[in-house]
Design a protein around this nucleic acid. Sequence first.
DNA 1: AGAGTAACCGAACGATCGGTCGGGACAAGA
DNA 2: TCTTGTCCCGACCGATCGTTCGGTTACTCT
Lengths: 197, 197
Amino acid sequence: MTTTRRDTYTPESLLAVAVRVFNERGYDGTSMEHLSKAAGISKSSIYHHVTGKEELLRRAVSRALDGLFGILAEEHARVGTAVQRLEHVTRRTVEVLIAELPYVTLLLRVRGNTDTERWAMERRREFDQQVADLLKEAVADGDLRSDVELRLATRLLFGMINSIVEWYRPDARGASSGAQVADAVVQLAFAGLRSGS
Amino acid sequence: MTTTRRDTYTPESLLAVAVRVFNERGYDGTSMEHLSKAAGISKSSIYHHVTGKEELLRRAVSRALDGLFGILAEEHARVGTAVQRLEHVTRRTVEVLIAELPYVTLLLRVRGNTDTERWAMERRREFDQQVADLLKEAVADGDLRSDVELRLATRLLFGMINSIVEWYRPDARGASSGAQVADAVVQLAFAGLRSGS
DNA sequence: AGAGTAACCGAACGATCGGTCGGGACAAGA
DNA sequence: TCTTGTCCCGACCGATCGTTCGGTTACTCT
């Protein structure tokens, strides 16, 4: 057996360190020297585990995208009324976003400077499009208001959800759980801020 | 008089070019070589107009912050009930964000790698705090729901508003005006997605 | 015509970039 | 004990980074 102890780096454990630094300094603002300092090994040693800086980015955004697309495969995202499915996807997106916070954070910040970044942006657009279709269906059912333009509403909904990566810190004192945040998002998105609704 | 023609760069006109490139590639991902290509002048010529790359960033985020803090100085942001003032600030924030889109976009993306970036983040936090206080007051008045945690609601509201920089393109066909987007944001934020409210 | 200056340029600076290379330390299996 | 492979290192590579410098062009004012 080779499932013995691991006090050395694996590609996965190195990825966790790298993604943390990427999110602190930005991908372009992070040098391999920064990563080596954060990981506690030399710059050249990093290349023993991964082929380079871009592989770390690719692994990270892949993990985020897998989590998101996994939601669309869930049963509650495929059966039921459109508005019910939309609510489920909304809630689960918040939960996945929080469960895979650093990876999704990185995904949401890529600018398209390299092939990897452009691929990530494209796949992310596919996910957004599928949710947009769901919202469109719910409006057609008469379950969602139709006076606000569809594309606008979709983008504002995603804006609200995706903003979580900018402020949610799981280790903060009095931090809400993923489910609590998901509740708040669903409440605000579907019923609004105003009282007595 | 020296108010004659200007077919040459000023610090301001150069800034407009730089900010556009910064937003396309990210600040760290943009080299002075990129800027010189986009501006159509040589790399060294840029230093005739500005002291360096960081001054361009400082000028850009200053302009964005001036626009935002200007809102809080407006009369409708200082008199009236809290919920009315909040609604005004919300609407005007959307409008300013769209009017100064590239500058605010840059402001919202700084990561804190330099002194300039950290200063920008601090001033932005001050603005957010003042709006948060307004929301708190409106909840105390009973005009906004109190079952969703205050900090959570504030952040989701800002998330929705700030997400505009990620998708709003004024030159797109069928693009909404700033006022129209502001309407949609106010509608969704205060009344929610659900129909019949 | 001559002086002054704003706008610009190519070449080069030291520093840092992502990545390569040859080899050492160490544990496991024979 | 000797090999094999994992994990890591310092030294170094060419390229690119933000910035500086000396100098040229072209326009304005006298």
